[in-house]
Design a protein around this nucleic acid. Structure first.
Length: 489
RNA sequence: GGCGCCAUCGUCUAGCGGUUAGGACGGCGGGUUUUCAGCCCGUUAGCCGGAGUUCGAGUCUCCGUGGCGCUACCA
């Protein structure tokens, strides 16, 4: 079976994790079952309050960054183009005309004012809202008169007055609606542009879409589209609604819940494979207990039938944990590359970095990998290795750089580390520290702590010997000497 | 209000009539150590309620309750 699936974003908002998650499911379905992943721009809402062309860039960036570049889309074209709805307007008009000719749709001349008034009355009366179908029952002469007057009109779907409309959903099973509760939806706006309902059906049909994978919030409008497929004489796709992603307040994820825009996650230093892994787990679970997976492993286990039905709350804590897991599995060379922009932006390394900075970074990665959760942790974690600390951490100073004992430890260390000219390895550093402790007749722990604060300015960090090796003898000695001024009595 | 969907630890979930209800995140406790992190071990906490079907129900049916979604010439 060849599947064709599509992601249909609208440039009326920055794509968010909920949206991209459906794109991930689309991509997975296409790859898993050997088909094409198509992305189509649904830009039929041109209200300047909502439509923002810059969102198109964000959509493109997000998809590419995630590694799910579409097989067919407006960027690279394809056999069913154009992939931008505003460039396909004639198709929707043709469909609308065909619908009118078959009495499956009709022209509606009601003004927005009348519609608003009608809705207000319905709400006041506490009855269900929906178009009252006034224009559906216009006589031919009335229709002719209105037409000759050249009044603007919309085209509405003529929903059957009785019976039911249903469909089978791959995730939710059979869903049925009483036609009396289905509205005579506007199909073509008065400006001649289609609404979502018409455009999506026309394009999905012409583009040969076999599976419509989209958010559960589309379920209530599906009967309108099912009706449209029938009226147009087309075969329905397989419907696959996936449960929503919620914020911590259990409401549909939105800006209110902190970072939800996908590009924010990119900027915050999440790894694409971690986002992919995490998003797919929101609604789908592999058979076994392995949760941290590569894209390849997910693909191997993925099955559309395994998608659950309950909405999932987006758990930032778990995402953070998972990102750390993927960082630890990340190739060190690639990780260094990924950290670079974060370090450069913080002004810790140059842009481009010097050769020495690159070497330091490469040496640092293995030491930092288990303390990073986000790439954006890199600057704070790594700063002490690129620049001499301005001053020691206050608590660290109080604890390890205070009193005559601290002073003598430092003095002994300066001497011990500068008495040798060989490159400073971790083994050599350990040996030196051990020797100092021995000569002072104390355990090595206090020496280690004092040196750590003296050299890195902080009490936390990777194993000291490895850290000293990264810094090199010259910088270590320099910092130890300078730290002597930091000692307080 | 109408329509639709959903309902297992705080969160993500496994479970597809018989289980000590399993795993993961988080929390808590302990271990390792040179601090932090990591790692290891342990622990915490759950089947929304009520009927029914059945020898037996988290699992099937119905009702209730709750939550969410949709209800635009937005998608």
């Amino acid at each position: 079976m060849s599947v064709r699936v599509r992601y249909a974003p609208s440039p009326t908002g920055s794509p968010h994790v909920g949206n991209l998650r459906t794109a991930v499911f689309d991509w997975l379905a296409a790859r898993k079952y050997g088909g094409q992943f198509i992305t189509r721009l649904e830009d039929t809402d041109r209200d300047p309050k909502r439509y923002k062309p810059e969102y198109i860039r964000e959509i493109e960036e997000s998809l590419i960054w995630l590694g799910i570049t579409p097989d067919e889309w407006w960027v690279s074209g394809g056999p069913c183009g154009p992939y931008i709805q505003s460039e396909r307007l004639h198709l929707y008009r043709e469909a609308a005309d065909a619908l009118i000719a078959r009495n499956m749709a009709y022209r509606c001349y009601c003004t927005e004012e009348r519609l608003a008034e009608m809705r207000a009355q319905q709400q006041a009366a506490g009855t269900g809202t929906g178009y009252d179908r006034r224009c559906r029952w216009l006589t031919d002469t009335e229709r002719l008169r209105l037409s000759e007057e050249g009044l603007p009109y919309t085209v509405r779907l003529a929903v059957p007055l009785e019976g039911t409309t249903g469909y089978t959903d791959l995730v939710f099973g059979d869903v049925t609606f009483d036609n009396r509760t289905v509205d005579d939806q506007v199909l073509l706006k008065s400006n001649g542009w289609p609404t979502y309902h018409l455009a999506v059906v026309v394009d999905d049909h012409h583009m040969g879409i076999t599976h419509v994978i989209r958010g559960e919030d589309w379920m209530p409008s599906t009967p309108k589209q099912v009706l449209l497929y029938g009226a147009l004489g087309w075969d329905q796709p397989v419907w696959v609604h996936i449960p929503l992603t919620l914020g911590s307040d259990r409401k549909k994820l939105s800006k209110r819940h902190g970072a939800t825009q996908f590009v924010d996650f990119i900027r915050m230093g999440y790894l694409p494979e971690a986002m992919f892994n995490f998003m797919v787990l929101l609604g789908w679970a592999p058979g076994d207990d392995r949760e941290v997976m590569t894209v390849a492993e997910i693909l191997e286990r993925f099955d559309l039938n395994g998608i659950g039905r309950n909405p999932a709350i987006f758990d930032y804590d778990k995402l953070r944990w998972m990102n750390g897991e993927h960082i630890r599995r990340c190739d060190h060379g690639r990780l260094a590359e990924l950290c670079r922009p974060f370090l450069a932006e913080a002004g810790i390394i140059g842009d481009p970095p010097s050769e020495e900075e690159n070497e330091t970074l490469a040496a640092l990665i293995p030491l930092m990998v288990e303390r990073m959760h986000l790439l954006s942790d890199a600057p704070a974690l790594m700063a002490p290795y690129f620049r001499d600390p301005e001053e020691p951490d206050a608590a660290g100073r109080r604890k390890w750089l205070t009193g005559s004992d601290a002073r003598s430890r430092l003095t002994a260390c300066v001497e011990a580390f500068s008495s040798d000219g060989s490159p400073l390895t971790a083994e050599c550093a350990e040996e030196t520290i051990n020797r100092v402790a021995e000569s002072l007749g104390i355990p090595r722990a206090p020496v280690i702590h004092t040196v750590r604060v003296a050299v890195t300015g902080t009490m936390v960090g990777p194993g000291l010997f490895e850290a000293l090796a990264v810094l090199g003898r010259e910088r270590v000695v320099r910092r130890l000497q300078r730290a002597q001024e930091w000692v307080v009595e």
